[in-house]
Design a protein around this nucleic acid. Sequence first.
RNA 1: GCCGUGUUGGUCAAGGGGUUAAGACGCCUCCCUUUCACGGAGGAAUCACGGGUUCGAAUCCCGUACAUGGUACCA
Length: 504
Amino acid sequence: MSVRVRFAPSPTGGLHLGGVRTVLYNYLFAKHHGGKFIVRIEDTDQTRFVEGAEQYIFDCLKWCGLEPDESVIHGGELGPYKQSERKESYRKYGELLVAHGHAYYAFDTKEELEQMREANKTPENPSPQYDHRIRKKMRNSLNLTDSEVKDLLEQNTPHVIRIKMPEHDVINFTDMIRGEISFDTSLVDDKVLLKADGMPTYHLAVVVDDYLMKITHAFRGEEWLPGAPVHLLLWKYLGWEKQMPQWAHLPLILGPNGKLSKRDGAKYGYPVFAMNWLDPKTNELTEGFKEKGFLPEAFINMLALLGWNAGTEQEVFTMEELIEHFSMERVHAGGAKFDYEKAKWFNHEWMQKKEVRSMKYEIGRLLETNNIPVNDEALLEKVIELVRERCTLLTDFVQQAGFFFKTPETIDADAVKTKWNDEKKNFFIEFTKQLQSLGNWSMTEIETVFKNLAAEKNIKAGELQLPMRVMLVGGKFGPAVFQIAELIGKEETVKRVGNALKVL
RNA sequence: GCCGUGUUGGUCAAGGGGUUAAGACGCCUCCCUUUCACGGAGGAAUCACGGGUUCGAAUCCCGUACAUGGUACCA
């Protein structure tokens, strides 16, 4: 049977690091086994709908290079790929469960549920569950007579369907990452399967949809582990046990204190979403890795290694290599703390590795939006090659490459002033004169002129290089100074030295 | 509180009975370079704790602690 996995996000906001990693592991697993990667939108909670969130998720996946094989926008044979559009199919499974005695109707109102919790609350049990003990005292089809239930149903009394958990049973299964896991059903509550509005809860929907969509392996965050016994039972009660997918519960990605949140991102200055997310309700902007200056390859590479490793020393992987080496068994079971420094390291690695041609366009645009005109593509390529090792984020190119295309607006005069004197000033005056008449404008020629003149004037060439650099680039950074002079050209070099001399 | 899961350096982690306990990031020292970066050479963990089992435990078992998730008609 061919592998089919799914990522099932609810379109309620930005796409979190942890979400992308879940997608990634699904994707890698599917591709490794030559299977299909499916995206299913879980929008059963209509109160949490957020405009634009669905499109945003697909945009992020595209940026990451994790294209689904089947989804709302990619199509597929086993749709619809959105739960709200499958609404009709859930009710009948709920009814079926009731008919077979595995579930029941519950007519309790919100107030009654609150009362129940309040009445049963003790210091030892601060949050009482609707479980096998409590259900005997509530308004549900287990306690009402058949005709009472029938009447209530006919009057369209709001009700839900709840699973009837066995009183004493042990449920166990093998998690692909964690091995054997077992639960005592007497400690699990009677989860709502079908809500009063007719929508399924996650518990019912995930089972029905995974079955209908022929999902073979179900991967999700560790936060779902406590819900597993409900799902396992549902697969069994619905008679689909043989088709049940294999499970793996992925470890959490943690922040400095607990689960990583967008709050952490804001606080520590790093992104937690894949791409910028503007919440239409609050108008709050949460920064994304993309806009921060990350390469998708680096972002994916970093995420892949956060909780998984190939068992070798390799750390930099292309998507193809990840697909080749990935296995769920090598995913670490413990949660991993996100390390922004390491994330930046991955980006730096990828900036060195990636083809200049495929970064050129984006870097060019970045410079343009920072008011640095780029009108020489060949020069841009040369510059990128020259300065990339000094860039950690794409945005670093603004400083590191900008001065090749635009005269610095200010120069770091303090950096040269401490050791500045008239002899040096005279050196530069004469140097520019000699440059003007230089025939062959190449870095070696320029350097020769520079060194000869320095020797002639009896000044250490080294002491003149820093001033020269600051004059050309504006600060103490950048590649070899004569290389810079060569690339910006004679006219510009002479001009920049002249400008600098005026303020020194 | 109860239930689940987890715990190897600051971080990601390899290793699953006998190893000087890999590697990477970050940090520190030095070299290269009279910018910055790259590169190179070094430095820093006894494996949460306590009991077992064993000739021998980071590795197996049991407790404890801590962390984390769940305990919603949210996913």
